[in-house]
Amino acid sequence: MKNSRPQAANYFPRDRAWHPQAYAPGYKSSVLRAPQRPLIAFANTLSETTGPAFGHDMIGQLDNDLTLNFAQPGMSAIGERIVVQGRVMDERGQPVPNVLLEFWQANAGGRYRHKKDIYLAPLDPNFGGCGRTVTGDDGAYAFRTVRPGPYPWPNGPNDWRPAHIHISVFGQAFAQRLITQMYFEGDPLIPRCPIVKTINDPAAIDKLVARLDMESSAPMDSLTYRFDIILRGSRSTLFENRLEGN
């Protein structure tokens, strides 16, 4: 076992021109937190191509419903009710099943339930702001929430975050670990946001914008937004999927 030749998958390298730049002075917090020396690359080992797994049994019934999971019995969060749904896939278009997604967001007024958030918009006593789910066999996921409000933040003299939901994703490998943010189609604050603008490529920014999905929206209940998440793919994805199916 110790010296066996590993069958490590090779993940496609991260395209660091597509991702946000580490040093992005328009986002002031990045200035002292961006490494300055070149990253060192090496071929993936099992330390990168393995990763923790989380079972469906870990997920509570209300974990993916932010309108209810912090609310008093019989109550629900205030705001525009929405469902966010989509699929987690890899760069080859293969679904990524059974991976944990975690979400967090401000309430409908743009206020986070966090002691560091001192924005004057009020807390909603029935809204905590966190949720989670595990993808299905087809990589699909969904959660219900309220549409978060935009909020001002101390960066430039008058910077506002567009409405957004933070999303953390595990893949099958530690090399796929990703945190991103989902924005909403049509929000005029998106092109003005210094955090959005840490990404240089408009096509990349567009991938973070969820689309209104009227066909999937539940009449008299909630609008649906569609947001697919792509994780790094590997050269042996197909092979691995076959192995797992055996």
Partner: peptide, 20 residues
Amino acid sequence: LYPFKESPSQTAGPYVHIGL
């Protein structure tokens, strides 16, 4: 071979604790 691109990252922000 490579039809999609990885979703671009965004900062976890100061309120990462709420989610994680």
